[in-house]
Design a binder for these strands. Structure first.
Length: 318
DNA sequence: CCGGACTCCTGGTTGC
DNA sequence: TGCAACCAGGAGTCCG
C-alpha cells in the first residue's frame, strides 16, 4: 500500500511524539510481524524496553527510529571496529525498523485508548513533554514488519547511518543526495523495461505501483518501454514527473482509497482524488479522453492511456 | 543479468 | 443471502 509519500506522512507524524521518548512497555500480539527481526521475540522486547528513541528516519518506503541506550554493549564495539576505527561509535548503534508492507499502519494513541482489531505490536512510550503515549502497529496482511537492526554507515556518506536491512535500498528521489546522473546512466545500461526499473528499489526507492503509473502517464511513457531505448530527455522528464507526483501526494497527505492507509492519527490522505491513471480504467484519459486501460503486469495492474503512452521504437543508429 | 512464478497473509468486494 | 473467487498500495527468493 504505502509508498514514499504515505511513509513520509507517518514519519513526520511520529517525529514530535517519539523523539526523545523512552520505551516503557512492549507487547507483541502477533509474532509474524517480527519476521524480519533477527532473534526471538523476547530479545526484541528486552532490548526495546528502557531504550530512548532518536528522530525517525526514512529511505524510500523504509522507516526507522534510531535507538539510544538499548542495553546491548556487544554491538557498539563490533561496529566501532569496522572500517573506521577512529570514528568510534555512531550516535546510535541500532534502530527500530518499520516497513508497512501493503497494509501496515502506525497509530499514535492515548495510553488507554481502544485497540484496533488488527493490532500486531504495541509500544508504550513516555515522552518528556507529552507524557505517556502508545504506538500501535496495525497490519491486516502482515506483509509489514518491525525489527531491531544494527546501523551501518552509508556507502556514499560515512557520517550517515542506515539499518543493515535497508542498506541495499537506493536513495529516493526526494533525498538531496539522490544521484540523477547515476540513475539516468543506469537506465541506459539496464536490459529491462521502464516500469520494472521504477519499481526496482535498488535503482530508485519509494515508488510503488500507484506513483509508477502516475509518473509514466504524466511523462507519456509506456510502461513496457525498454529503458535502453528511452531518450535521455524523456528520462529526465520522467524523473521530474516522479518527483512532482511524490511531492504533490505528500502535500495532500498521501493516497487513501479507504481506511487502509491512514496517518498516525488515523486520518486518510486526499491524493486519490488527484490520480490520472491509477485505478481509473474505463474512465477518460484527462489529457485526450481515450479510456484508460488496465493491463496485468508483474502480478498487478498497469494503468495507462494507449494514445498518450505509445511504445516508442528505438531510433536506428544512422 | 533478467523475467516469471511463487511466497509471506487477511479481509473487503464482486459475481454467480 | 450465501459463498467462492478475486483483488489489493510490497518485496524477497528461487529457478530457468
Amino acid at each position: 500500500m504505502p509508498e514514499l509519500p504515505e511513509v513520509e506522512v507517518v514519519r513526520a507524524g511520529l517525529e514530535p511524539a517519539v523523539t526523545d521518548a523512552t520505551v516503557t512497555g512492549v507487547e507483541v500480539l502477533d509474532e509474524r510481524s517480527l519476521r524480519r527481526h533477527d532473534g526471538p521475540v523476547e530479545d526484541f522486547i528486552q532490548r526495546l524496553i528502557g531504550a530512548r528513541f532518536a528522530a525517525p528516519q526514512r529511505r524510500g518506503k523504509f522507516l526507522w527510529i534510531p535507538v539510544l541506550d538499548d542495553g546491548d554493549p556487544g554491538r557498539v564495539s563490533a561496529l566501532a571496529s569496522r572500517r573506521r576505527p577512529e570514528m568510534v561509535v555512531a550516535p546510535s548503534s541500532s534502530a527500530l525498523v518499520i516497513h508497512l508492507g501493503m497494509s501496515g499502519q502506525v497509530l499514535l494513541r492515548e495510553r488507554a485508548a481502544a485497540r484496533d482489531r488488527l493490532t500486531r505490536v504495541v509500544l508504550e512510550v513516555r515522552h518528556p513533554e507529552h507524557g505517556p503515549l502508545r504506538v500501535d502497529f496495525v497490519d491486516q496482511r502482515i506483509f509489514g514488519s518491525m525489527a531491531l537492526d544494527h546501523l551501518l554507515p552509508t556507502v556514499d556518506d560515512p557520517d550517515q547511518w542506515i539499518p543493515s536491512q535497508v542498506a541495499h535500498i537506493a536513495r529516493d528521489p526526494l533525498d538531496p543526495r539522490f544521484d540523477d546522473r547515476a540513475f539516468l546512466a543506469a537506465l541506459g545500461r539496464k536490459q529491462t523495461t521502464i516500469k520494472r526499473a521504477l519499481l526496482d528499489q535498488t535503482l530508485i526507492s519509494g515508488i510503488g505501483n500507484i506513483y509508477a503509473d502516475e509518473a509514466l502517464w504524466a511523462a507519456r511513457v509506456h510502461y513496457e518501454q525498454p529503458t535502453a531505448t528511452l531518450r535521455r530527455a524523456r528520462a529526465v522528464t520522467l524523473l521530474a514527473e516522479v518527483r512532482l507526483v511524490l511531492g504533490r501526494a505528500l502535500a495532500e497527505g498521501g493516497t487513501s482509497f479507504d481506511a487502509q492507509y491512514v496517518n498516525v492519527n488515523g486520518a486518510s490522505g486526499y491524493f486519490s482524488h488527484s490520480l490520472n491513471a491509477y485505478g481509473r480504467q474505463g474512465e477518460p484519459c484527462p489529457r485526450c479522453g481515450r479510456p484508460i486501460v488496465r493491463e496485468s503486469f508483474m502480478n498487478r495492474g498497469s494503468h495507462f492511456c494507449e494514445l498518450c503512452q505509445k511504445l516508442r521504437v528505438a531510433r536506428p543508429l544512422s
